[in-house]
Lab assay of single mutants.
Amino acid sequence: MSGNGNAAATAEENSPKMRVIRVGTRKSQLARIQTDSVVATLKASYPGLQFEIIAMSTTGDKILDTALSKIGEKSLFTKELEHALEKNEVDLVVHSLKDLPTVLPPGFTIGAICKRENPHDAVVFHPKFVGKTLETLPEKSVVGTSSLRRAAQLQRKFPHLEFRSIRGNLNTRLRKLDEQQEFSAIILATAGLQRMGWHNRVGQILHPEECMYAVGQGALGVEVRAKDQDILDLVGVLHDPETLLRCIAERAFLRHLEGGCSVPVAVHTAMKDGQLYLTGGVWSLDGSDSIQETMQATIHVPAQHEDGPEDDPQLVGITARNIPRGPQLAAQNLGISLANLLLSKGAKNILDVARQLNDAH
C-alpha cells in the first residue's frame, strides 16, 4: 500500500501541473516587456503551470559599433537563445518575429505568432524639431536608422535628408537623439515604442507609400524545439490566425527572394473581405531603383483552434497545428507568387547589386 502511495506522490510531482516552463529572452527592456506579455497570456491559459524567465545577451546586443547589415552573420539576435533551447536550458524563446530568419536551424520551429501590433515605422524627432515631419525637416538634416530597408525607401522619398546608421537598443538610440546634436530624427518601429509606453515620442507614423515595413514587423514569434510536442501544444494558444497568415505570406515572399538583413526588402499586408493583399518591394541601397507589386488571394481566416493538420510540417519556419492547413498554404503560395513576379521584373539584379555594395563598404 505504502509503495503505491509513493508512486502516486511521484506521479503528482512529475505531472504537468508541477512543471516549471523556462522562457528565454534577450536582456533589453523591450525584450523583457514583450516576454512578460507572452508569459502573462500563458499564465492565464495555464494557471497550474509556473513560468521562469531567463534573460541573456546576444551577438546583436554586444556589437554596437557596426551596422547590422555589415556584421555579416545571420541570427544576430537569436543564436545564443537557440543555443540555450538546444541544450534544454529553456523550453521556449520569445523573439520579435522580424529577427527570426525565414529558414531556422534544424530542430527549431516557430510554435506561435502572437497578435500583431502596429507594424509601421515611426519617426521620433529631436526636441528642437518636435512638430515637424520628415518632409518639413531642414535641408541636409541627419536621420538615424539601423535599417537598409528604411534608408533606401526614405532616401527616395525625401532626397533633402541624409540617413546615417544608429545602433543600440531603444533606450540607447533615444538617448543619442536627445543628448547629442548629430541626429534631427530617428526611425523606429511603432510597436516597440508603444510597448515601452513611449507613445508621446511618436512624431509621425510612416504610411506604406512612404515606407513599407519589415517582414514580420510588429509581431512576436515564440520559438521552440520542433519535436517538443508538449510545448508546441502549450504555445499553440498564442497563435493569432490573421497575423499568422499575413506573416506566412510575408516570410514566403522574403524567403523566395532570398532577402535578408543586408538587402532592402519591404512588405505591406492587409486582410479585407476574405482577401489577403500582399505588397512587396525591393530597392537599391540608395533607393534610386525599385520594383513594387501587389497581389491578392482569397483566404478564409479560420477561428482559433479549428482542428489543424496533425502532421505539422513547417511552413517558412512556422508550425501551427491548430490552424487549418489550406489557408496557410494559400498564404505561402501568395508570397511565392509575388516573389516570382518581382524576380521576373529584375528584382534579383537589384538585390545582387545591393548585396555587393553593402559587402564592399
Rank of each mutant, 00 (worst) to 15 (best):
S37V: 08
V39H: 06
A40H: 08
A40T: 12
A40R: 07
A40P: 03
T41F: 08
L42F: 09
L42T: 05
K43Y: 08
S45V: 10
S45W: 10
Q50P: 15
E52W: 05
I54W: 04
S57T: 06
L64K: 13
A67V: 11
K70L: 06
K70G: 11
I71F: 10
S75M: 06
L76Y: 07
F77I: 04
T78H: 05
T78N: 09
E80T: 12
E80M: 10
L81K: 03
E82K: 06
H83S: 12
A84R: 06
N88V: 07
E89I: 13
D91V: 04
D91F: 00
L92D: 00
L92H: 05
L100R: 00
T102N: 10
V103E: 09
T109C: 14
T109P: 00
I110P: 01
I110Y: 03
A112G: 07
I113T: 07
E117G: 11
E117S: 06
H120F: 15
V123I: 13
V124G: 06
V124M: 13
P127G: 07
G131R: 10
G131Q: 14
T133F: 05
T136D: 12
L137P: 02
V143I: 13
T145L: 07
T145R: 05
S146L: 04
S147N: 00
S147D: 06
L148A: 02
R150S: 03
A151E: 02
A151P: 02
Q155D: 06
Q155S: 13
K157R: 10
F158G: 09
H160N: 11
L161R: 02
L161C: 12
E162D: 10
I166L: 11
T172H: 06
R175Y: 06
Q180T: 10
I186K: 03
T190I: 15
A191T: 09
G192D: 05
L193R: 02
R195F: 04
M196Q: 15
W198D: 09
W198N: 13
H199T: 06
N200D: 14
R201T: 07
V202Y: 08
L206G: 06
H207R: 08
P208N: 03
E210K: 02
M212E: 04
A214Y: 02
A214G: 08
G216H: 00
Q217T: 02
L220V: 11
G221S: 08
G221H: 06
V222F: 01
V224M: 15
Q229C: 14
L232R: 04
L232Q: 03
D233R: 09
L234H: 08
V235D: 01
V235C: 03
G236L: 05
G236F: 02
V237P: 14
E242P: 13
L244Y: 14
R246D: 03
A249R: 02
F253P: 04
F253I: 13
E258I: 13
C261W: 04
C261V: 01
V265D: 02
A266L: 03
T269Q: 01
A270K: 15
K272F: 12
Q275L: 01
Y277S: 06
G280T: 01
G280P: 01
V282C: 08
L285H: 08
D286E: 13
G287M: 14
G287D: 06
G287R: 07
I291G: 07
Q292R: 09
M295R: 14
Q296L: 13
T298N: 07
I299L: 08
I299S: 06
E306R: 12
P309A: 10
P309V: 15
Q314D: 00
Q314P: 11
T319Y: 14
I323S: 10
N333Y: 03
I336R: 15
S337E: 06
S337W: 00
N340E: 00
K345P: 02
A347S: 15
N349G: 11
A354T: 14
A360K: 01
